[in-house]
Write a protein that binds this DNA or RNA. Structure first.
Lengths: 120, 120
DNA sequence: TTAACTAATGCGACTAAGTCGCATTTAAGT
DNA sequence: ACTTAAATGCGACTTAGTCGCATTAGTTAA
């Protein structure tokens, strides 16, 4: 599925900003925040956040708050847990398919925090 | 170990604010943010955050950022995973002892997000 | 094509959690 | 009690993210 379809399938208007934003998100290998990519985008900050919120509603994007008080985003395909290092603050994707289950809950995402391999 | 010992053992000065803060934290059954308890405390906001940071350095307190952009705190005894509901935004402690391991990482905390039992 | 309608955008102002600087107070050793 | 350094309260500040509003641009139908 291409970017145009991703947008149209959700009955969203196809705009330059939305196309640019999805291209950007698809390019990443890990979650990013606004600061990380603002210099590579032409859209305004408000437009960025409004579109991110829209994409979240439509379940195209997943986000979470990191301990640096910034919101991080990634495309919601290939769902996987994340690891956030408490020492170097790097965020990594966990590819280990062994995602834990919790009785009584529907787990939609998992975040591990601790010391990453580089910080040991 | 009582509160006075907890503070003295870390070579911290025993102050009214610190005692009050630890009493407050020990009373909770789940993580709390400043807003949750400010009305029950006499100390200033700056003092609260400074002492929380100090307690974190001394590993008395654990904190994390929730999706409401607020920082949540709890006493760092009896470490356990947490569950944050994406729908009612409630934070719960997971008592299930089955905490997952990750090869190559030292996991210090785990946060699950999704739909809690009340929201199904 | 064009017209008309509505949603999306950019901009500047605003919000609020958390931090900082500094003058004052207080804990703790002598 | 006296001294000294650390802790506190207060107000000002920072900054990620949001809001209001005037303008622009997709989309649908004629």
């Amino acid at each position: 599925m291409n970017i145009e379809e991703m947008i149209k399938n959700k009955n969203l208007r196809l705009t330059v900003a939305r196309t640019e934003l999805l291209e950007m998100l698809l390019k990443q290998s890990k979650p990013i925040c606004y600061e990380d990519i603002k210099e590579y985008m032409t859209m305004d900050k408000a437009t960025f956040y409004r579109n991110i919120s829209r994409f979240e509603e439509e379940e195209i994007v997943h986000s979470f708050e990191a301990n640096d008080k910034k919101r991080y985003f990634e495309i919601k395909i290939d769902k996987h847990p994340h690891f956030m290092c408490n020492y170097c603050h790097k965020i990594e994707c966990i590819t280990d398919p062994h995602t834990p289950l919790l009785e009584g809950y529907i787990v939609e995402s998992v975040m591990f925090k601790g010391r990453c391999s580089a910080c040991q």
